[in-house]
């Protein structure tokens, strides 16, 4: 049911873990629905230097988290904000239809992490 790329990212997830002093953290989902993704970003001069993730969820949830980190490391935050859940799924050569909505939230988590980073930056400016 999963593509080879999904299985690769599921079995060998990239960038699992946490960033000790992250520029921003974003979390989506809840344990009731069976998927939680938390994404940590390290930003320097508006460039995403590092991304780490922790995910509770099915194979698709873990694989989308993993590939999402690969897609945005080295990108500017403006570029990263353009990343959609659909683009994440496409980068994995697709997901089963029933997984498109419930388990494909990595871009949302990333956007939340960027929003968190921006909010913290505003706070420090004040």
């Amino acid at each position: 049911m999963y593509t080879d790329k999904v299985m690769d990212h599921f079995m060998n997830p990239r960038n699992v873990g946490e960033i000790e002093k992250p520029s921003g953290v974003g979390e989506v989902g809840n344990p009731t629905c069976g998927d939680i993704m938390r994404i940590y970003i390290d930003v320097e001069d508006d460039i995403i230097k590092d991304v780490k993730f922790k995910t509770f969820g099915c194979g698709a949830a873990i694989a989308t988290s993993s590939i999402c980190t690969e897609l945005v490391i080295g990108k500017s935050i403006d570029e990263a904000l353009k990343l959609t859940n659909e683009a994440v799924a496409e980068a994995l050569d697709g997901l089963p239809p029933q997984k498109m909505h419930c388990s494909n939230l990595a871009a949302d988590a990333l956007h939340k992490a960027i929003a968190d980073y921006k909010a913290k930056r505003e706070d420090s400016k004040e």
């Binding site: 299985m7 599921f10 509770f56 194979g59 873990i62």
Partner: peptide
């Protein structure tokens, strides 16, 4: 606790 069943089944299957 703390893990989801499908990912567990996939890893067991491997």
């Amino acid at each position: 606790r703390y893990i989801e069943g499908e990912s567990l089944l996939l890893m067991l299957d491997m």
